[in-house]
Amino acid sequence: MTVEILVNVTPAETRAALVEEGVVQELHVERRSRRGLLGNLYKGRVTRVLPGMQAAFIDVGLERTAFLHAADVAGPPPDETVAALAPLGAPPVEDVRRLLSPGEDILVQVIKDPIGTKGARLTTYVALPARFLVYLPRGDGIGVSVRIEDEQERQRLKAAVAQLRGAEADGGYILRTAAQGVPVEGLREDLEYLRRLWRHVCARDAGRSGHAGARGPAVAAAHPAG
């Protein structure tokens, strides 16, 4: 099938048309006013640590400092005494002061857009989506969307990603619902793309930290693939 994509860019609006065999099949419109920050990766600086709230405020170069809760910080393996002291039933959360200190630079991802006067909410558990896979650089294991119900298919997908990933323990993967029935080749493309993307982010991140003292926070990636 012959597919053409036409893209029309104006300062505040981008439109795209998908044309198959000369017939317009899809129209997409994106306006700057509607574009959120969700999913964006930033190199941020810890400005305040609030032990009472188990949280920290991070300057990511936005109008308002962003919020990072201790539960959303990937840290060193939990301290046993802290875990023992945590109330039963509640997941043990690391003391925020052990995880973050003011002035520190960290890589964060926006998980909630700023609304009204509330700043954005962040996490350090980065998740990078592609078509069929979501890559969790700081996670582990291979998960499959519960909406893929066929047990054989779940096993096939898991095995395929395990093999593609190889021995390298480079984080976790989630198989999205869209992965159902997708041949290995499609999964490979995604996996390779995500790895390249993450290397790219890390390289920029490393490049930044050299000047971290002199410079303010900067966008590590305007969005995961930017």
């Binding site: 099938m1 012959t2 597919v3 053409e4 994509i5 036409l6 893209v7 860019v9 981008t14 795209a16 998908l18 997409h28 419109v29 994106e30 574009r35 959120g36 969700l38 999913g39 964006n40 998740a127 989506p129 592609a130 078509r131 979501v134 499609g186 493309e189 793309y193 969005h223 995961p224 693939a225 930017g226």
Partner: peptide, 25 residues
């Protein structure tokens, strides 16, 4: 999370594998 990419890149990501012969910008 799927919406992170700006539209032009998102459409590339989704469609390039489907035999796109030309993208005009």
């Amino acid at each position: 999370m799927h919406e992170d990419l700006p539209l032009p890149l998102r459409i590339l990501r989704d469609e390039l594998s489907r035999g796109v012969v030309r993208v005009l910008v």
